[in-house]
């Protein structure tokens, strides 16, 4: 498979585009404005970031966000014409539209985040953060967190298998699972403690903090194309803010 087009951008540009996309999505609360933005983000995630696998996996979650947002927001919105009433549940037209806009906004943000993760490794994320003057220690910590999560999952899976091999059944309800989780928690916790100790030693022996600034590796400076794209996105985001300040794009002007 060929490389995703967005992967060609500098990691800092990708991070900037992500941030500006989030700004754009939060600027409006009218579904007529949010829906095209969310659709555009989804298409970009699919075709420019090749994030179809993660999008497919999270599609049910995204649908659940939209439905729950449509159902949960109306009771908190008094403005607008009554649209539906069921016992104490009351929904106005503006409440439903606002709920739909917030749901679509969340879906757009989810897609943008997944698209970013699909094209950006933790090391690239660290590189992007360093471009924004975040200290190297914070970026290494971030990379370690990404690295250790699968290790923790693997250790948990092995501990689970080991206890199942000794006849442990967790049951189907949450309380039963929580009560019987001690045989899992202790081995995983102790392994984590030992791992953290060894990891710290390994980092130090490999020169971590031996120099003030690690050599940038595998990174190239941002190109004119990176700068141009970031500037264009910033202009679009600024324009969107102006449109919103002029009173457009909101079903509830007083709300975000």
């Amino acid at each position: 498979m060929t490389e995703a087009p967005v992967k060609k951008l500098h990691p800092a540009t990708r991070l900037a585009l992500l941030m500006l996309t989030l700004v754009l999505l939060t600027t409006f609360n009218n579904p007529a404005y949010v829906a095209p933005l969310a659709a555009g983000v989804t298409l970009a995630a699919l075709f420019l970031c090749r994030a179809e696998t993660s999008l497919r996996r999270t599609a049910p979650l995204a649908a659940a966000f939209v439905v729950s947002s449509i159902l949960l927001w109306p009771p908190f919105i008094k403005a607008g014409e009554p649209w539906a009433q069921l016992w104490v549940y009351r929904a106005t037209d503006l409440g439903v539209l606002y709920g739909l806009a917030v749901g679509l906004r969340i879906v757009g943000m989810l897609c943008a985040g997944l698209a970013f993760l699909a094209v950006t490794t933790p090391e690239e994320f660290g590189q992007a953060l360093r471009s924004f003057r975040v200290p190297p220690s914070a970026t290494v910590t971030l990379a370690l967190a990404f690295r250790l999560l699968p290790v923790m999952f693997e250790t948990s899976a092995r501990a689970l298998e080991a206890q199942r091999a000794r006849g442990l059944e967790f049951g189907s309800n949450f309380l039963s699972q929580a009560r019987r989780s001690l045989p899992l928690v202790v081995p995983v916790f102790l392994y984590s403690l030992r791992s953290a100790d060894q990891l710290a030693t390994s980092l130090e022996l490999r020169g971590y903090r031996a120099t003030r600034r690690p050599t940038p590796y595998g990174s190239r400076p941002a190109s004119a194309w990176d700068w141009g794209l970031a500037a264009a996105f910033a202009a679009v985001a600024a324009a969107a803010l102006v449109i919103r300040l002029c009173g457009h794009g909101a079903v509830l002007p007083g709300r975000l």
Partner: peptide, 11 residues
């Protein structure tokens, strides 16, 4: 396993 610090082989 506990001494590996990055997420990709090259890094």
């Amino acid at each position: 396993d506990a001494a590996l610090v990055a997420t990709t082989v090259e890094d």
